[in-house]
């Protein structure tokens, strides 16, 4: 599928800026996200192709603006909702609950 993810040869995306030294995960949420991906993959909720395809279905502007693990998060949410494992409402309600608890 052609799309924004198909970046090979595109001009004007700026310098690479490789970091000399960087942690494996930048934030704790990235750690949890990585573990969630592996756990749900091991649980048979999707295969790698479905997972990547759900990233490729992201809105193009959103794709370019968001970080790698946010792509993963978006893909995981999309697939788990599509497969009926969780609902949008459940996710929204829990998010609200956690935000209130955190405040």
């Amino acid at each position: 599928m052609n799309g924004i993810h198909d970046l090979g040869g595109m001009d004007g995306l700026g310098p690479i800026n490789p970091a000399k030294d960087e942690p494996i995960f930048k934030d704790d949420w990235e750690r949890r996200m990585f573990g969630l991906f592996i756990s749900c993959f091991a649980g048979g909720h999707y295969n790698v192709d479905e997972f990547r395809h759900a990233i490729e279905r992201m809105d193009p502007a959103h794709y370019l603006e968001t970080s790698y693990y946010e792509h993963w998060l978006t893909s995981l949410e999309t697939l788990l909702v599509e497969k009926g494992v969780v609902t949008q409402d459940e996710l929204a309600a829990r998010k609200k609950h956690i935000a209130m608890e955190d405040a």
């Binding site: 949890r32 969630l36 756990s39 998060l73 969780v86 459940e90 996710l91 829990r94 956690i98």
Partner: peptide, 10 residues
């Protein structure tokens, strides 16, 4: 929040 919500529900 999204990651925490997902982890907590799952």
């Amino acid at each position: 929040l999204r990651v925490k919500a997902l982890e907590s529900i799952l």
